[in-house]
Design a protein around this nucleic acid. Sequence first.
DNA 1: ACTATATTGTAAATTGCCTTACAGTAAATG
DNA 2: CATTTACTGTAAGGCAATTTACAATATAGT
Lengths: 157, 157
Amino acid sequence: MATKFENDADEKAAAFLTDQDRLVFLLEELTRRLRRTFDTSVEQFGLTRTQWRALAYLYRTPGMTQTELAGQLELERASIGQAIDRLEHLGLVERRSAKNDRRVWQVHLQPAAIDLLPKMRVEADQIYARLLEGIKGEDLEAFKSTLATMQHNLGDA
Amino acid sequence: MATKFENDADEKAAAFLTDQDRLVFLLEELTRRLRRTFDTSVEQFGLTRTQWRALAYLYRTPGMTQTELAGQLELERASIGQAIDRLEHLGLVERRSAKNDRRVWQVHLQPAAIDLLPKMRVEADQIYARLLEGIKGEDLEAFKSTLATMQHNLGDA
DNA sequence: ACTATATTGTAAATTGCCTTACAGTAAATG
DNA sequence: CATTTACTGTAAGGCAATTTACAATATAGT
């Protein structure tokens, strides 16, 4: 056989991917590993990935509406409604109706979620320590800057 | 009211997040936007995200086993089996039994998938052009390097 | 005001992925 | 060899997220 490939299709395929594809794959794989690592860490608290991600965004921005959460978490509005249902039953969040718009719920953390916070803080910091090991401060700043540019470039045009 | 927050829980929550949290959120949001942009682009080909991701990995590495694909795509082996079922029925991939291990299927692209390839190439390149606009070559190289370090750091310890 | 259009969240049915358990095969151990 | 242990893929049932359709409310256009 003339090549290491078994047929034409395989040969064309292997030549197909570019450096840019590989960059995107690498990004995907890194965030996948991050999500998995966090999943393992929050299992002990009885939270699913969607639940802790929702809490994390609510830690950052209290009072988000369900539609805003859906956009941030890459879920549909209907799915977020269900997730908030569960978090509400767990006593971790509370829906409050907005004053100026009676269609929307603003989602706020409950004290029980705040109690969970320091424990999640410890887990997260341990993960970050691993993630950033051996990376110089200036390199990390440059990384963030490039990342921000990429995100801006992809803004909803 | 003394602060802009409505209660103590909100105030504590807003102070909770660190720069490192924000870095991870930014990473998640970028890859989310990337996935959504690709999703929109491949809708015309009738492929779901899982299907085109599987094809992309098979473009890179023909003959991957289902277990290998599961690891790369962050899916379970059972799920990959179903996805490959669908891709096989679409005539895009083919299962071949491995010579040395009768337990495994090696998954290979079919000519139909190769026909799809140039069209996906065009879509992907357009997205990359947007993504990388205004980023200098050396900055991109540094970015990749830091990314690789992070991925290595998070390797399955 | 009145109407048309858009937005927010919900309900029901569907789809996709996961979990668990298992059969078939391979590799390791005695 | 024989037996045990590990690995690969499949089947069945359950759960989470989506799709579609809708009610309630808000906004824009006339």
